[in-house]
Nucleic acid binder design. Structure first.
Length: 414
DNA sequence: TCTGGGGTCCTAGGACCC
DNA sequence: TCTGGGGTCCTAGGACCC
């Protein structure tokens, strides 16, 4: 059985295009939070030479000159469309691993099936995907890249074609080879994926560790990264964000921290985990090294693991308070929950009243339930009043929440 | 003026144990 | 001359991914 990789084409851009068809065939970019960096580019925008991850302000003029359409990122919309795409893919294969917001590995053999699936995803969700099929995940990645380059949108690498295709692939483009590894490989005279595939095993292990060895085996068509159908729950959960404008007073900082805690705690409950380790950090703008830099981290353990937001907010503020200095221009803050444990195996605590615990649980259940329908409807006052938090991120080109908010449904005029 | 955010896995070295 | 040996656990940092 072969492994297939379905990869959405310019995913965030494609999501914007679903509801704004006038953006098709035009250069479009999507920005990261705070309109900071360019994180997605349409084919047309790539052709203009706009690099991935570039700071927006440096390219503003070029984008304007070429009439590139700019969109702020709208994550709730992308997450919703992603789950719709994954649903369609899951129907096609009994074994599927959702790898990221826009990619999934699954088992599939025939090119015709891949083509039918690609068309189905496009018809049902409006999102174009490319599908690559090969013997391993690493080779399927290569195949999906070829699929994107070609017109068909699908590609299968047969056993006998592997060497020929890999000979044309620079090592930089192998999945798992980054800046450092590629430099290291080239220093050893290994410049193509085929060279890597033919590398001596002992040398490979010595120079690049077990990860290097696995990559090499995968290039040879031997599975070293198996399909992992239901991955373990996350080991840590974090939430952080740059501020829309600098924060200098404790009230604003405290609101932002509470917001990050509430967000992370929601994720925590979603995967059925609890935490007993909290970390909070505050930083100034690292891009202005000439100005005074502040960067402080604080952490604390809780006596008993919990997923109860109010307790976590209280603790996080306790950690943050001594780290904070008035009138320092903070740019960013964040929280991290570690030591996650599954709630189902949690230890009973002698010192917590069971009745109270049940009440707390009911409260969080209700909160989460309401927020599934409307994120604005219920939140903690310590996060600040919505609409009055001027530390909130900047999003000057944001599209409506077409699929996740009743107030922002698409209007059609007849 | 303006520079993202959230993850994973591996490794080396230190602390500690017997 | 010659300064145990083997194991575990934890942590920080590196590298990479999307």
């Amino acid at each position: 059985m072969n492994i297939a990789l379905a990869d959405c084409n310019s995913f965030f851009v494609s999501c914007e295009r679903v509801f704004r068809p006038e953006l098709r065939y035009r250069p479009v970019v999507v920005l990261s939070s705070n309109d900071g960096c360019i994180v997605a580019r349409s084919k047309e925008a790539k052709k203009l030479g706009i690099p991935m991850g570039a700071p927006y302000f440096k390219y503003k003029d070029i984008l304007q000159k070429h009439g590139v359409i700019v969109a702020s990122s709208n994550f709730p919309l992308y997450a919703d469309l992603s789950s719709r795409v994954m649903e369609v893919l899951a129907e096609a294969s009994p074994l599927i691993q959702i790898y990221s917001i826009d990619e999934a590995f699954f088992t599939l053999d025939r090119l015709e099936e891949a083509d039918a699936l690609r068309k189905k995803v496009l018809r049902w969700t409006g999102i174009p995907v490319s599908i690559g099929i090969a013997a391993t995940k690493t080779l399927a990645k290569v195949a999906s890249h070829l699929a994107k380059e070609g017109e068909e949108g699908v590609c299968k690498i047969e056993k006998h074609e592997e060497e020929k295709i890999l000979s044309k692939l620079p090592v930089e483009e192998i999945w798992g080879v980054g800046r450092n590894t590629s430099k290291h490989l080239r220093a050893l005279g290994i410049s193509s994926a085929l060279d890597f595939r033919r590398m001596d095993e002992t040398l490979c292990r010595r120079e690049f560790g077990v990860m290097g060895l696995r990559m090499m085996l995968e290039l040879r068509g031997e599975i070293a990264f198996p399909l992992d159908e239901d991955p373990e729950p996350q080991k840590g959960i974090s939430s952080s964000r740059s501020f829309g404008k600098e924060v200098t007073c404790w009230e604003d900082m405290s609101e932002a921290i509470a917001m990050h805690v509430a967000k992370s705690a929601e994720k925590l409950r979603e995967q059925g985990s609890e935490t007993n380790f909290l970390q909070v950090y505050l930083l100034t703008n690292r891009f202005h090294p000439e100005k005074a830099q502040f960067s402080r981290v604080g952490s604390a353990y809780l006596p008993v693991p919990t997923d109860f937001t109010p307790r976590l907010i209280e603790k996080a503020r306790e950690i943050a308070k001594p780290l904070f200095f008035e009138n320092v221009p903070y740019k960013k803050c964040g929280v991290f929950f570690g030591n996650l444990t599954q709630k189902s195996h949690s230890q009973a605590d002698l010192f917590i009243c069971q009745a109270r615990k049940e009440k707390e649980e009911k409260l969080m259940e209700l909160l989460d339930l309401v927020r599934v329908k409307d994120k604005q409807a219920l939140y903690f006052l310590s996060e600040g009043v919505k609409g009055k938090q001027d530390w909130r991120m900047k999003r000057n080109h944001v599209s409506p929440l077409y699929t996740t908010s009743w107030d922002e449904l698409l209007h059609i005029q007849i």
